[in-house]
């Protein structure tokens, strides 16, 4: 019998952009589709999997390592919604130690103990702090860990800046068997207002990637999170749950990721300035098209 190929996905994005919300809903939706899923939080805050476990925190891999010196990976795995395996890497207190090394250690610990194979997983989804500030946060995209990377971004310039930085990381490791880019999950994008969507569309075109799903801002998500649940669990019939299920469907069907084409700092500045001018013009009612086009 051929060995089952576990699909390993890393989800990056600027802090506070909605990574964990998106990831948890993606995990929940994939689980509902019948897959065995593990969600692996790679953020020292260790709150990635909260909404899969009724808002509760779980002991992290690094806490166990600190307290016991040696960790049996099973002690760090907790079941959440619909049997999803939840793991948090954890990390040091803010301002001390090396969080990046913590991520490397936690990821390698699970990999070495071959728990993914043992649990017969279909999906491992890494939820990673997205600024890729050092090598540790790049470990899921290095050779042998994740195969596909998705980045969560809004149309805010700083979120796009973080996404562009991530693309640089992916490009760097692309020649040595690292993960490639599946696309952008456009989060908090108003589908009514034209320019938010246009900014992201323009960015993915410039960087030679794609938008996998547009996720609108929704009060349903906030309500679900406040009750410690994903939208999939708390409001399965809502429109927003449908958006996440569609995202899961597309991720499941996704097979071929690519090397992105990140913008240089100069290109990014010029690109942002161009959009800034356009938005300002639109809001002040300035007409920019040639007269004959009106």
């Amino acid at each position: 019998m051929a060995e089952k190929k576990i699909k390993q996905i890393a989800i990056y994005g600027k802090g506070g952009i909605g990574k964990s919300t998106t990831t948890s809903n993606l995990s929940a939706a994939l689980s509902d589709m019948g897959y065995k899923v593990m969600q692996f939080g790679c953020d020292p805050k260790a709150d990635s999997t909260n909404t899969l476990r009724d808002g509760s925190y779980i002991p992290t891999v690094l806490e166990l390592l600190r307290d016991k010196g040696k960790v049996d990976a099973h002690e760090a795995i907790f079941e959440g919604y619909n049997g999803i395996y939840c793991v948090e890497a954890g990390g040091p207190a803010p301002g001390v130690g090396c969080a990046g090394r913590g991520i490397i250690t936690a990821v390698q610990l699970l990999k070495q103990q071959k728990v993914f194979e043992e649990l017969d997983l279909d999906y491992v989804i890494y939820d990673v702090l997205g600024d890729v500030v050092c090598g540790g946060f790049a470990v899921p995209i290095r050779e042998g860990i994740a195969q596909h990377v998705f980045t969560v971004s809004s149309s805010d310039f700083m979120a796009i800046y973080a996404a562009n930085n991530l693309f640089k990381g992916i490009q760097k490791y692309s020649n040595s068997g690292g993960a490639l880019l599946g696309g952008v999950i456009a989060n908090s994008v108003s589908l009514d207002s034209g320019y938010q969507r246009s900014i992201i569309d323009d960015f993915v075109e410039r960087t030679k990637t794609q938008v996998v799903q547009y996720v609108p801002r929704s009060i349903t998500v906030t309500q679900s999170e406040l009750s410690g649940k994903t939208t999939i669990e708390a409001a399965p019939d809502s429109k927003q749950a449908g958006v996440y299920r569609e995202l899961a469907q597309r991720v499941d069907e996704h097979t071929e990721s690519k090397t992105p084409n990140p913008l240089t700092p100069q290109e990014l500045r010029e690109w942002a300035a161009k959009w800034s001018d356009q938005i300002l013009a639109a809001e002040s009612g300035e007409v920019r098209q040639p007269a004959e086009s009106i």
Binding site: L65, R66, P92, A93, V96, G97, R101, G102
Partner: peptide, 9 residues
Amino acid sequence: ESDVIFGGE
């Protein structure tokens, strides 16, 4: 390794 991750002070 633990000192590296959590700080060795």
